[in-house]
Design a protein around this nucleic acid. Structure first.
Lengths: 160, 160
DNA sequence: CAGCATGTGTCAACATGCTGACACTGGACA
DNA sequence: TGTCCAGTGTCAGCATGTTGACACATGCTG
């Protein structure tokens, strides 16, 4: 893990450049998503939360927080907001480990479909200039970077 | 340029998957950088600010804010903190357009070199598992995504 | 059985970033 | 020349996220 990088000149290492590009691309993507989602009354974390709940209904708040990359407390207030708008429903009687299972309501399904369309459009503008095999390659490379940073081998979760 | 996205099933489009991977990788990279930078007394935005000042000395605070992807106000308080620690110096007499040129101090140079080494190490762990040409390809693909998101005004919803 | 580690939900205090607003400067344009 | 507009720095208020702490439930271990 110890790479003695040469810091004596102005040049950035290719790895650093990838890091900068990563931040720039993600920041712009987040910004574009926010522009599209806000008219629907959703923030990007809220959309990510709904999307995660759609993929895994009945999930606990803590697991949700991990997937959306926020703390349990932030996810809690986020869920309170969504519950107040009738988009999610939290089981009142806690489960085996004091867990409160959370599910989407039917009202959320329609809104989420609309939001998914908007997000897919934004993501499309990002990759439309690239041939399909380049997109696939980019996906594989990003997955490799993520796994390397997570430290977990995780066998690159094959999801074709 | 054809993204008539099919939202009727659970599948995500390849573009969406790239977006999710982008967020996951960037979030993990930010986390790892923070772990390395905090012992040096720097946050990630502070490091990015110093790095930008190293690349372009005498830059204005607003331009700095744009490069670091924060607002002018946030950059202002960030610069106040750095100035209080003697890492940057802001010209007291404003320039042509009330601008206050900001430069690094000699004390910052040493700290920044150390921080750059740490960041380069983190970035290295991200790309060490990839061959050099894959890193170059990843860089080119990310740059293409960034440019597409930065240049595209907003015509992604459907085909107008 | 008692004790303890783990996982979860929640509350309070704190930090950070952003939006809105204002003052000031310099250049463009009628 | 006078006026408007873009760019910058700054202040106040608000929204959001995080850390730290506590209570509760479950399962493992002595």
């Amino acid at each position: 893990m110890c790479q003695t990088v040469d810091m004596n000149d102005d040049a950035r290492t290719p790895a650093e450049e990838v890091g900068v590009l990563l931040k720039e691309a993600q920041s712009l993507l987040h910004q574009r998503m926010d522009e599209r989602l806000r008219p629907l009354g959703l923030s990007v974390p809220q959309y990510a939360c709904l999307q995660a709940l759609r993929d895994s209904p009945g999930i606990t708040g803590s697991e949700l927080a991990r997937r959306v990359f926020v703390s349990r407390q932030s996810m809690n207030v986020l869920l309170q907001g969504l519950a107040g708008r009738g988009l999610v429903e939290r089981s009142e009687q806690p489960g085996p480990r004091r867990e409160r299972a959370t599910v989407l309501t039917s009202a959320a399904a329609g809104l989420l479909d609309e939001a998914r369309g908007a997000v897919a459009g934004v993501a499309g503008t990002m990759t439309d200039g690239l041939p399909a095999d380049d997109v696939a390659r980019l996906r594989a490379l990003l997955a490799a970077c993520r796994d390397a940073l997570a430290g977990a081998p995780s066998t690159a979760d094959g999801r074709p």
